[in-house]
Structures are given as C-alpha cells and as structure tokens.
Design a protein around this nucleic acid. Structure first.
Lengths: 154, 154
DNA sequence: ATCAAAGTATGGATCTAGTCAATACAACCA
DNA sequence: TGGTTGTATTGACTAGATCCATACTTTGAT
C-alpha cells in the first residue's frame, strides 16, 4: 500500500491524516497480527519517533472506524489486522502463540447463529481454534519420546 | 456441591486438598463466570482469609487438572467456570460484560474442523458471540431515540 | 501416631499492557 | 492564513497477573 492510497483511505474514513497514523496503518498492513508493541517498534524504525500513547490512540481510532480489527486472544496482548471485511477466524498455537487466518468453515455470513440466542442481539461470532502449529507439534513429539514424563502431583 | 464431594473431586484429580482450594472450587461452582477478584471476595467471606496469590494458584491448579475452565474474553479479566466436559460457548454483552452459556449450534463434538487447518493440531474451538443482552439492548434503543447522534470526526 | 519430604500459602516486590491528564502541536475548514 | 478542533507527547498511574523467599500444611512412609 503506497502513501497516496493510505492517505486516501484514512480520509475516506473520516480520520485525520497524520504521519503517525499512516505509519501505524502501514505497519499493520505489512505485518498482520502485530501487537501494539510490535507496531511501536516498526513505526519508530520507519518515521523515527512516535509515542506509545500515539500508537494506542491511532490503533483505537483505526479500529473504531473499521480500518483495522482488534483481536484479543487469551494470554496475549491485543493484536491488530487489516483484513476486516470478511468473516475469517484464527488458528493460534498454544506454545508459540503464532497465529494464522483461516476462512470460516460454515459459509458466507456464518456462525452468527447460536443454538439459543437468549434474547441477545448478536453482531459478531468470534472463533478461535487452539492447538499446536506444525513446528511446535514436531518439537513436542520429539521431546515426549526423549524424556519419560514422571507423574507429578499438583 | 457439599464438602465431601468437593474433597473427593479434588483427590480424584490428584490435587492436594486444602481449605483454600475447596473454597475456590465451591465459589466457582456456585457462581460460574466469576473473576479471580470475585472469587477472592467470596472465599474471604467464606473461610476468613486467603491470599490473592493462593487464589491464583488454586485457579491455575484446578484449571490445569481440568476441574475448571478459564475464559479470557477481550476487555475483561479472566473468568472461570466449572462446566468443563461439554463443548459449550459463550454469549457476552458488549455493554455490561455479562456472560451466559450457550450450547453449540453444530452438534456433539463440533466446530473442531476449520476450513483449512494449515497443519495445526487443533484441540479446541473457542466461540464467543458478541452482542447486546436484552437489558442493554432496551436501554440503548431508548437512548438513541431520545438524543440525536451528531456526526463526529475521529 | 509421627516425621520428613514435597507441595502450598503468605506477603511483598515486580511486571506488562493499557489508560489518564496536561500541555504542546498539527490538520483542516472558513 | 488564521482559529478551531483534534492529535501527539510526556509522565504518572492502574489493573491484572506473576515471581520470589519464607513459613506452613498435607501426605505417604515409617
């Protein structure tokens, strides 16, 4: 995404255009699933300086206007991605916390129907698949064959 | 759940039986979706004294042995429940954060199949439905008819 | 029943992710 | 090209959770 497009995008969404916001939006686009801290580092390398607060402000503004999506998986700081217009889900590794996108198994506008909505007005179904990524699964198998696990009370 | 059953349950799971753990387990059973802080308060009222650390330790131990399940919804401290053996999901209100259980729409051992598992070994599908609970939905509708919303740049 | 080993509780320090508040600054509209 | 309004910066602050060292319990073995 080039500078002009990024600027236009911000303007279209009624967001004031600042160097910080452009840099934040581009950082997330370049590397989806980044944490605020990741983004802070990237932006700092990119435009020289930015405050931590500005990163949070920009992420909040961009999320509120629908340019970014915030993901807050259990046991991890919030992550951001720019793929906002489809209903996709995430696959997260319990060991290394790496995350990949996965399309919804159900269909177009899926998952929004709970068995019983209890009177709630549901607007989003968030699906997270937890497991082991290929690398961690391999590592785990090797380790468990190598060393015998001894029983341990908790 | 009475004292004897709770004790037996802990022992069956290879967890040492202490007053604190019994109290924690019972507190969660009595009031599912409690936060660590809620539990701390209840247990303190129940057995007189417990350290915050002991609450966390107990919750971790009970979660690790499968007696409790930890839920960590976005924007909320971790919550705990004792309904662990079925695959049920949660409905959370964006406004008041209240949470109710909801059975899985798909079936018995559901949702575990992503469209493409990317080589991951998936062991859990976590589904959270976000929306407005009946009370908050009513409140919201009243407010939005009462005051006109003005456009606001971000 | 008693004892030693191993696990657990306590209190206090510490950490991380994130928010708040005040001032300085920049974007944008007239 | 101001003037208004929103944004960035800095620094203090908070909640939630974890780490550490010491003291205390539980429990299996004697």
């Amino acid at each position: 995404m080039d500078l002009v497009n990024t600027t236009t995008l911000l303007r279209q969404h009624g967001v004031r255009v600042t160097a910080q916001r452009i840099a934040v939006l581009r950082a997330v686009s370049d590397q989806p699933h980044s944490t605020a801290d990741d983004i802070d580092k990237v932006v700092r390398a990119d435009i020289g300086t930015i405050s931590r607060q500005a990163v949070y402000d920009a992420l909040t503004a961009l999320t509120d206007t629908g340019l970014l999506r915030r993901i807050q998986p259990a046991g991890s700081p919030a992550r951001y991605e720019n793929r906002v217009d489809d209903n996709h889900h995430h696959l997260i590794c319990r060991t290394c916390n790496c995350m990949v996108d996965v399309d919804c198994a159900v269909g177009e506008t899926p998952c929004l129907t709970a068995a019983d909505d209890c009177g709630y007005e549901i607007d989003e179904a968030e699906v997270v698949y937890w497991g082991l990524c290929p690398e961690c699964a391999t590592t785990y198998r090797n380790e468990s064959t190598r060393r015998k696990r001894k029983d341990r009370r908790v």
